[in-house]
């Protein structure tokens, strides 16, 4: 998800030829940045969507090699509605994970 935010403020932090990549998918139309913020420093505003299967495997292997995992809070399946409410308040560090053993 992406909370609507002011792209211009972040674009202006970029040096010449810097790129801002959006990966959050907003639920409503998102305001566009100012054109001059792109033109005057040859900056780029780009988007990116997950990754292909080959790259996903590469990422998993990379994370296994470097011991990278997510910070999670484990929940039973029937906690999911509460989890959604907490997600909306950013009250999770940093991902809920459902233990499917709880789904009986």
């Amino acid at each position: 998800m992406a909370a609507p935010h002011n792209l211009d403020v972040y674009l202006q932090l970029l040096k010449r030829d810097g790129t801002m990549i959006l990966v959050g998918a907003p639920a409503e139309p998102h305001p566009s940045p100012g054109v001059f913020n792109l033109i005057f420093k040859r900056r780029q505003l780009a988007g990116s969507l997950i990754g292909g299967i080959r790259e996903t495997q590469e990422m998993l292997d990379f994370c296994a090699q470097h011991d990278i995992v997510s910070d999670v809070e484990m929940i039973p399946m029937d906690y999911i509605n509460t989890a959604y409410e907490r997600m909306l308040r950013s009250d999770v560090k940093y991902r809920f994970v459902i233990d499917l053993a709880s789904l009986k």
Partner: peptide, 12 residues
């Protein structure tokens, strides 16, 4: 369990 989020958050 901590690997699960890699499948979306990690690759994204």
């Amino acid at each position: 369990a901590s690997v699960a989020p890699l499948l979306c958050a990690g690759i994204t």
